[in-house]
Nucleic acid binder design. Structure first.
Lengths: 108, 108
DNA sequence: ATAACCTACAACCGTATGGTTGTAGATCAC
DNA sequence: GTGATCTACAACCATACGGTTGTAGGTTAT
């Protein structure tokens, strides 16, 4: 899923379809690559559930799935939480009376 | 950078080195793959500046760069902002008097 | 000095990725 | 019906990815 968002073209596609539905071909016109290439990008986003498709006559309308984007963001936020948890622990340790030397377990 | 975080092993490495410094070999011991493989992962994370290395004797101590993680999170958050901006616009449009049919520019 | 350890890097392999072109099925406009 | 359009998919290509093994250099311990 993060892999799907790692490509700039795909992020741009997600940005646009989050603002409203777009057909695959109208999306394809925005980028300097073939229709098939954009179609593959959309398929990759669809596989990651970042995007949904809805048939409308001969065209396929693509829209963004905000929930999946939030999931991705949450995943990264977890990393930040780990970091702040470490900071908290450091605060606790420093708050303790006569704390030992904080080496990495390698006694001198 | 998102690509660097797309791999589960690399995310796990980031998680650990955000909590404290670890040598490359001690990291390697955590995963069911060769030392060289883990070394490559660390190199990829270093290229994305998600991780820093510091020489200490014969070992190389790896630590996490929280700023880069925040940048990645911010990048995804921008997508969510686009979404909420759309919601806001929808509110405005609905608030307008006699709004026209919101088709996609294809007159019937 | 020798052995053990940590790291870096190159070479290789199978597979996935991002792109292309081409073909074919639906659907719409005329 | 015919032609234009939108989509899907297969085949192909070059490159990158994630993994392996092997080699070599620097550091520590004995």
């Amino acid at each position: 899923m993060l892999h799907a968002l790692a490509d700039p073209t795909r992020r741009d596609i997600v940005t646009h379809v989050l603002q409203g539905e777009h057909s695959v071909s109208s999306l394809a016109r925005r980028y300097p690559m073939s229709f098939a290439a954009v179609q593959k990008h959309v398929a990759a986003l669809e596989r990651a559930d970042l995007v949904r498709k809805r048939r409308h006559g001969r065209e396929q309308l693509v829209s963004g799935n905000i929930a999946a984007v939030r999931d991705a963001t949450a995943l990264l936020s977890q990393l930040e939480e780990v970091w702040s948890a470490r900071i908290d622990r450091m605060g606790e340790i420093l708050a303790e009376p006569n704390h030992p030397e904080p080496n990495r377990g390698e006694p001198i």
